[in-house]
Computed example of a mutant assay.
Amino acid sequence: MNYKQTTQVPNDIFDHHLNQLSHSELKILLFIIRQTYGWKLKNGKRKTRDRISHSQFVSKTGISRRNLSPIIQSLILKQLITVTDWKGNLLHIPEARKGKAGIYYAPWVSTYALGSKRVCNRKHKPVQPGQHNKTNLSKLKEGDYPKRKTDWERISEILGRK
Rank of each mutant, 00 (worst) to 15 (best):
150 T>V: 00
37 Y>Q: 10
43 N>S: 09
18 L>V: 15
82 T>V: 12
47 K>R: 13
125 K>N: 10
161 R>E: 09
136 N>T: 05
15 D>T: 08
25 E>Y: 07
120 C>S: 12
132 H>K: 07
47 K>M: 11
63 I>T: 10
109 V>F: 02
72 I>S: 02
30 L>P: 00
14 F>H: 15
66 R>K: 11
127 V>G: 01
70 P>H: 01
21 L>M: 04
90 L>S: 15
156 S>F: 09
1 M>F: 08
50 D>S: 13
89 N>H: 14
124 H>N: 13
67 N>I: 01
130 G>W: 02
36 T>S: 06
10 P>A: 11
110 S>N: 11
29 L>C: 06
5 Q>K: 15
83 V>F: 03
134 K>S: 06
116 S>W: 13
98 K>M: 06
72 I>K: 02
53 S>K: 12
75 L>K: 08
26 L>P: 00
49 R>I: 03
12 D>N: 10
92 H>Y: 04
133 N>H: 02
88 G>F: 05
134 K>P: 00
73 Q>S: 07
153 E>Y: 01
24 S>Y: 07
23 H>Y: 12
61 T>I: 04
134 K>N: 05
79 Q>M: 05
160 G>H: 04
45 K>R: 13
5 Q>P: 00
137 L>C: 03
92 H>G: 04
65 R>K: 14
124 H>A: 14
95 E>L: 12
79 Q>G: 01
154 R>F: 02
72 I>Q: 05
97 R>S: 01
79 Q>F: 03
32 I>K: 08
25 E>D: 11
78 K>L: 14
117 K>V: 13
113 A>S: 14
83 V>K: 05
34 R>L: 15
41 L>S: 12
121 N>D: 09
30 L>K: 06
147 K>F: 03
35 Q>W: 04
85 D>A: 04
26 L>G: 01
135 T>D: 05
162 K>S: 09
104 Y>V: 01
68 L>K: 06
119 V>E: 11
150 T>P: 00
49 R>H: 12
150 T>D: 03
107 P>Y: 05
69 S>T: 12
127 V>E: 06
97 R>I: 02
48 T>K: 15
122 R>L: 15
135 T>A: 05
51 R>C: 15
137 L>V: 04
125 K>E: 13
29 L>H: 07
71 I>S: 02
151 D>F: 06
